[in-house]
Amino acid sequence: MTTTIRNPLLDIRRIYLEPAAAELPRGQEILARFPDAERVEVESHNRIPELYGDEANVARWVRIKTEALVLGVKKSLTARPNGRSADFIAPSTANGCAMACAYCYVPRRKGYSNPITVFANIEKILGYIERHAGRQGTKPEPNQVDPQAWVYDIGENSDCSLDATVSDNVRDLVDLFARLPNAKASFATKYVNRDLLDWNPRGGTRVRFSLMPVADSKLLDIRTSPIAARIEAINDFVAAGYEVHVNFSPVVVRDGWLEDWAELLAHLDSALNEESRRQLAAEVIFLTHNDRLHQVNLGWHPKAEEVLWRPELQQAKRSETGGWNVRYRNGHKGRYVTALTDLIETRLPYCRIRYAF
């Protein structure tokens, strides 16, 4: 099975590969999709000096995302408890992205570029997830994640809609959750991939379209599908058998922010049919930024930092990696959250807010 490649964001010219990945069937399939790409063997997918940790790459940020692909083997298979977007974070089948959202947290961990890395040992990952879901049994009681199913986030560090243009890993995951009786996949996306409409998820996959006001998206959501296209896709994905939620994320506080959110909500309300409205729910996530990502952005997209880096509105907290994360100040943030959630409840009374922070 080979997915049609229709992705203007990618022009793969160099594939960094672990030899073990190239020996696996999925690795061979991926290499066959990009036959003209230069192949560079590496010892480890996450230790490639010319990609990660080199400050000079700031100037080549988008080019690296467009032209480089990393092919590796996922070594550690764990399902981490979550409790917000999902019950568990599934072991990833990819990380990195060809898109270049100015607020993305993945570059903080990987350095100055984060092209797509695909893991070729998909069979082991699928087997692990199926066994893990089997051990959970029936969900004992509803929670805000889902009333019945154990939900696994399959795209914590990547965008699955985009990953599906590179390999069949995402389709394999959707097929798996279509047949698991007690579990559901979930992923957030900013990329409309209509090839997914030809799959058969049977209600076993939740797609969360990330939305924000158009003005914010044009400034911050670099190389993503337009907001209008994401909203337009919702009814089609519901009709195709997906559960579809929305992520109002990240919420950026700036002059006129609430008025622009009101306009976005009006657009969403006018686009949804009754079937989509009945199953809709939302996550509301306010911006968290980082001092290291701030420095990266100053090198390639400084205009974004005019709204992302607002010391007069934000407070800092030491991150697990030793840097500083910044969030809107205590007290002020509570008022922002209340203002937006009240607006959502007024404009979209049928939309359940799963959580907001």
Rank of each mutant, 00 (worst) to 15 (best):
M1A: 04
M1Y: 00
T3R: 05
T3Q: 10
N7D: 15
R13Y: 03
L17C: 13
P19M: 07
P19H: 07
A20Y: 07
A22E: 00
A22V: 02
A22C: 04
E23H: 03
R26T: 04
R26S: 05
G27A: 04
Q28D: 00
E29W: 02
L31M: 10
R33L: 10
F34Q: 02
A37M: 11
R39A: 02
E41Y: 07
E43F: 11
H45V: 04
I48E: 12
L51F: 13
L51P: 11
L51D: 14
Y52A: 05
Y52T: 09
G53F: 15
D54L: 15
D54A: 14
E55P: 05
N57W: 06
V58Y: 01
A68C: 13
A68F: 08
K74R: 15
K75H: 14
T78V: 15
R80I: 10
P81D: 11
P81G: 06
G83W: 02
A86C: 12
F88S: 01
A100Y: 13
A102R: 15
Y103G: 01
N114I: 03
F119V: 01
A120K: 01
N121K: 01
Y128G: 07
E130R: 13
E130L: 06
A133F: 05
G134H: 06
R135Y: 10
P140R: 13
N143H: 09
N143K: 09
D146C: 04
D146R: 11
A149I: 00
W150E: 12
V151E: 13
V151L: 11
D153F: 12
D153H: 14
I154L: 15
N157P: 00
D159L: 01
C160N: 12
S161E: 09
D168C: 00
D175N: 15
A178W: 09
A178M: 04
P181I: 04
K184G: 03
F187M: 10
A188I: 14
Y191R: 03
L197T: 07
N200A: 15
D216W: 05
D216Y: 10
K218P: 00
I222D: 11
R223L: 14
T224V: 09
T224F: 07
P226Y: 12
A233D: 08
A233F: 13
V238C: 05
A239S: 08
A239I: 00
A240V: 01
Y242F: 11
Y242L: 00
V244R: 00
F248D: 08
F248G: 01
S249F: 14
V252Q: 04
D255L: 02
W257Q: 09
E259S: 13
D260Y: 13
W261C: 05
L264D: 04
L265D: 11
L265T: 04
H267A: 12
R278S: 15
Q279R: 12
I285A: 02
I285C: 02
H289R: 09
V296G: 03
G299F: 13
W300R: 15
W300T: 04
K303M: 12
E305R: 03
L308M: 10
W309H: 14
L313I: 08
L313C: 04
G322W: 08
V326D: 00
R329N: 01
H332A: 08
H332C: 00
G334W: 08
V337K: 14
T338M: 09
L340T: 03
T341P: 07
D342V: 03
L343M: 11
I353T: 03
I353D: 05
F357C: 01
